[in-house]
Design a protein around this nucleic acid. Structure first.
Length: 461
DNA sequence: ACGACAGACTT
DNA sequence: AAGTACATGAAG
């Protein structure tokens, strides 16, 4: 249960329907058995009938069902939900990507290098639910979102959401939602007219503030027209994931604190994982309120902070690595030229207009003579791609053993891949310049948000 | 670390 | 009348 200070914040937040708290806690109403997001448009229930839960799973586990108006399943994920423990964080991320959908808890734990008993214990201790319950909750929430926002057949939704039998899906769904999948769908008043394409459209919410113009600016400066397009209000790109290819468009919609995301995807079973990638690429999960508060405590940094500045991430670590290596020692402009030619020469076609970012295999096999850069750097690129093939990108710190990859590249990859909020390329030219210009010295106090501090520094120039 | 049990899961 | 889509009981 929240302490009294937190409780007070929660009370104020829900009465004000403050979107900055969306996803950080949930409001359960004892009299109706329903739980809501803090922003729910329904009349605010009396305080005496309300209890608070830090996550939707916990409200669910306490016997409440999700509200049909505010759609708790669309709330942004809370950072607290990743936990502090490194193992737990990794486990949660992998479960979000569907790691438990076809794998037993035993096998999964083994692949994490711990026992299933210990994993259960970690979950219970830090998150208050078991891994199975959590995985199931994710599946259900995603299924619910698909029922609401797409025209997909219910059977398909069961499998896309990660269930392995329709029977199980129906049962599990009804038990938590108190409504069968088709009944839920029938109940919808806002059933959109049939979409002509099979592309999926979803709304992905963030927690304000989100300064799209800063994000847009960053993306536009680095836009690679062969794989992506940046417009005033949207970002589109091709991607691939475990052999599936796709194309996404994310349109900024500040009135809903969300992005309208359109997804083309060759293998729909990857849809959930794709949405998590998009959340990371567009930095939809972070809690800027908290981050900006920490960074603002540095009185020298405080005046130059831009509120709502997000961390634009690459599709995956491999892409971040290629961009980092091609960006060594050169300007953003020159790095663009190198990356564009690598995509042009080695990437596969996605359609008539776009290509896919080259795979590690394509770079390993590729003849890199077209690149106008020192041979040693080409070799580094080759070795990096080989490392990625060998290790699948796990344990990033081992890339420091590759010749030509030093601390700058390592930190830059961490920063741009969007998995780490505390990357800090201290030898970066932009960072050094900004630190001198604004007389900044004590970087330690920016932890654990130095990735965001770096972005603020770059932007201050 | 162990065993009993509940309930998660598939057909 | 046959086919499609979904829900659910029973059993292991």
């Amino acid at each position: 249960m929240p302490n009294s200070a937190t409780l007070k914040t929660y009370q104020q937040a829900r009465l004000a329907r403050d979107p900055r708290f969306d996803g950080t806690f949930f409001v359960a109403v004892k009299t109706t058995g329903i739980y809501c997001r803090p922003i729910c448009p329904a009349p605010a229930p009396k305080e005496q009938n309300v209890s608070y839960y830090p996550s939707s799973v916990q409200a669910q586990e306490a016997g409440f069902r999700p509200c049909l108006r505010c759609r708790p399943e669309t709330a942004p994920l809370s950072a607290a939900w990743l936990g502090n423990q490194a193992v737990l964080r990794k486990a949660v991320t992998r479960i979000q990507a569907g790691a438990l959908n076809q794998t037993s808890l035993q096998d999964f734990s083994e692949s994490m290098g711990i026992s299933d008993r210990y994993l259960r214990k970690l979950f219970q201790q830090y998150l208050g639910v078991s891994p199975i319950i959590y995985a199931n909750h994710l599946r259900l929430m995603f299924a619910k979102q698909l029922l609401h926002q797409t025209q997909l057949p219910i059977n398909d939704i069961a499998f896309i959401a990660g269930f392995n039998s329709v029977r199980r899906f129906n049962d599990s769904f009804k038990a938590t939602m108190k409504l069968s999948p088709s009944n839920l769908r029938k109940k919808l008043h806002n059933q959109q007219s049939l979409q002509e394409s099979q592309a999926i459209q979803l709304k992905l919410h963030y927690r304000p503030p989100y300064d799209w113009s800063l994000m847009q600016d960053f993306l536009q400066q680095r836009e690679l027209s062969a794989i992506e397009t940046v417009t005033d209000h949207s970002y589109s790109r091709t991607f691939s994931l475990d052999g599936a290819n796709g194309f996404l468009t994310a349109e900024f919609d500040s009135s809903n604190s969300s992005f309208k995301v359109t997804i083309e995807l060759s293998d729909m079973s990857k849809l959930l994982e794709v949405t998590h990638h998009i959340r990371r690429v567009m930095d939809l999960n972070s809690d800027l309120e908290v981050i900006e508060k920490t960074l603002g405590q540095d009185s020298n940094l405080q005046p130059l902070l831009k509120s709502g500045l997000r961390l634009p991430a690459t599709w995956n670590t491999f892409e971040a690595g290629v961009k980092a290596i091609l960006g060594q020692q050169v300007s953003v402009k020159a790095a663009y030229t190198h990356t564009a030619s690598v995509i042009e020469q080695l990437g596969s076609d996605y359609n008539k207009q776009y290509k896919l970012f080259p795979t590690a295999q394509q770079i390993v096999d590729g003849e890199l003579s077209f690149l106008k850069m020192p041979n040693s750097r080409k070799q580094t690129l080759h070795n990096f791609a080989q490392w990625y093939l060998d290790t699948n990108g796990e344990d990033l710190s081992s890339i420091l053993d590759i010749k030509g990859i030093g601390p700058w590249t390592y930190e830059y990859i961490k920063l741009r891949s969007g998995f780490d909020s505390d990357a800090f390329p201290e030898k970066d030219l932009g960072v050094i310049k900004a630190m001198e210009k604004h007389n900044l010295t004590n970087t330690g106090q920016w932890q654990p948000w130095r990735s965001y501090a770096t972005l603020q520094l770059w932007h201050s120039l």
